[in-house]
């Protein structure tokens, strides 16, 4: 039967080993992450945070699920559309959900666009790519229908 001492050793050793592996994997992963970013991308991220865009939208799947995912927004909606939304001076209500009117100037808009483009070009293991939206099963089904 397990003793309290053995249970304690299980806890301590298990924690130490997994934490060591976690730190190792972190170091390994971060070596492959771009740390120096173009200034406009960094400014764009700052504007993203300052306005708490994540409080409604999601980016890389993280946020509030109230407004659309923006990881791939430039590819999906096109730059002029995004530019128009960011610079709108009056609140608008796409599909009944109100968005704050940010009325951004040209510089801030450019920075936000740069930020979205940078995110859109990341390798996200297939997340939020247009072709991902059609499941493999659906693709086969569509092929069958066409044939």
């Amino acid at each position: 039967m397990l003793t309290k001492q053995q249970a304690k050793i299980f806890f301590l050793v298990g924690t130490f080993v997994t934490f060591a592996i976690f730190i190792g994997l972190t170091i390994y992963s971060l070596q492959q992450v771009q740390t120096r970013l173009p200034e406009d991308v960094a400014r764009g991220k700052h504007i993203w945070e300052k306005n708490n865009c994540m409080g409604c939208h999601t980016i890389m799947g993280e946020g509030a699920y109230y407004a659309p995912e923006l990881t791939n927004v430039i590819e999906r909606r096109g730059e002029p559309f995004v530019r128009g939304v960011l610079q709108a001076k009056k609140p608008w209500q796409p599909n009944g959900r109100k968005m704050v009117a940010y009325g951004m100037n040209e510089q801030d808009t450019n920075d936000m666009i740069a930020f979205f483009k940078w995110i859109g070009n990341l390798d996200l293991n297939g997340f939020e790519k247009v072709d991902r939206k059609v499941s493999p099963l659906a693709v086969d089904h569509m092929k069958d229908n066409v044939e």
Partner: peptide, 11 residues
């Protein structure tokens, strides 16, 4: 870490 732009090992 699956979809935030880090190494695939996290999958």
């Amino acid at each position: 870490y699956y979809y935030i732009g880090v190494n695939k090992i996290w999958l």
